[in-house]
Design a protein around this nucleic acid. Structure first.
Lengths: 215, 215
DNA sequence: TGGCGTATATTCGTACACGAATAGTCGCAT
DNA sequence: ATGCGACTATTCGTGTACGAATATACGCCA
């Protein structure tokens, strides 16, 4: 039989990792994720949190350990990880680290539809983007510097350095793209033309080159 | 009133862009997206395609123009973009280009939970990843070279260059990370210790440094 | 000619994501 | 003492994503 695929929501992975540390109840997981700034890397919605926990229970990766009531607060269910869950955590992590998964960043989508914007407007928008990115990289770099000055173990900020590396790459790319457009890049006049004779021009272009790049 | 947010699925953006070119029916959109290799940048599922089209109709961005039947083939509905839809296409594109949106790549999630893997295993897995990435960058670079040799306008492969830029950045990052771990990076012994005395060590670490980096 | 693989074209059911609602508690300023 | 905003903790309803099922047509070769 084909191995059951991992849950789709990475939040489930975080839950497994937390319960690997010790048993706890859902809300506490949320609080810990926030305190430790994991929410910068793993999207946290309380609605989804309870959903994925149910899913993990259904698959036998975690189990309710006890339900406690403190004072007259609402009842809380404490969960713990199961042996199967530990295996799943391990396998899932190994997959994620070893195998790049195809992702679809929104900016890439925008880039591949860029011709629908007139070139001069595209240029202005790209300049705006560049500014925002420069701000973000500055902030991130500052945080990393500040934190590593406190001797916080590098192991716990590796994800931030990763984010910074990607952001910097994007910064360089956008700056370069702007420069190319400014220098009358490729078929700039043709690009402008699209917006006067939209109907057929794009299609013709693609036909001319056999349906697009990289057949 | 707050401006209605854009649809959440970028496939809807592609639909608007295609109908900006000319009216067509859903299946044809799918085929065109494939031919032009947009599916590399915009996730295409036929199920979702019909869903987003209904959504776009509901918002008044596109409208059914006619339903045609060719031979005894199933009936097809031809859609066209509305003036409101053209505005939406423009505004959405402008937003996407000008404003970076926070994304959550799965590898970043894995990195921030990396301590749950023993360091030696993590190292082996990272080496595997590096190999895959090197293959991908080689393939991508080859495609770009081949295509630009045919004089295909650079405007139409900008999204591929973007993907390559990010991939290369990740390659450099992973290589560097491997090297750091090999060189007995930071609290390597402590990291190994986690897997013998899991219970409390992680929590203690975070407490010690005030709940994590970057308060 | 009949059977099978492939292309055309859409519908449906289900599972998941998540905003919003709910509800009790605590501290504190008025 | 009382009203109010912030915190604790979970449930619910709705909308979206998408795999799988459906159904017809077409080309081809045995």
């Amino acid at each position: 039989m084909a191995p059951r695929p991992h849950p789709s929501n990475p939040l489930a992975l975080a839950v497994l990792a937390l319960l690997f540390e010790r048993p706890m109840h859902p809300y506490e997981m949320g609080v810990l994720l926030k305190q430790r700034h994991k929410e910068d890397s793993i999207k946290l919605r309380y609605g989804s949190l309870y959903t994925v926990i149910e899913l993990l229970v259904a698959r036998g990766f975690i189990a309710a350990k006890e339900t406690a009531r403190e004072g007259k607060r609402p009842e809380r269910t404490i969960y713990e990880i199961t042996p199967v869950g530990r295996d799943e955590l391990h396998d899932w992590m190994a997959d994620l680290v070893a195998e790049p998964v195809k992702e679809f960043p929104q900016f890439e989508a925008a880039l591949c539809l860029l011709p629908v914007l007139p070139p001069d407007e595209a240029l202005a928008l790209l300049r705006q983007r560049l500014k925002r990115i420069e701000q973000s990289t500055a902030v991130l770099a500052g945080q990393i510097a500040g934190v590593s000055a406190q001797n916080f173990p590098g192991l716990f900020l590796v994800e931030t350095e990763y984010r910074l590396a990607l952001l910097k790459a994007e910064q360089v790319f956008v700056a370069e793209l702007i420069r190319r457009i400014e220098n009358g890049w490729g078929p700039l006049d043709l690009w402008r033309g699209l917006h006067h004779d939209r109907e057929a021009t794009i299609a013709k272009l693609y036909e001319q080159y056999g349906g697009g790049p990289m057949k």
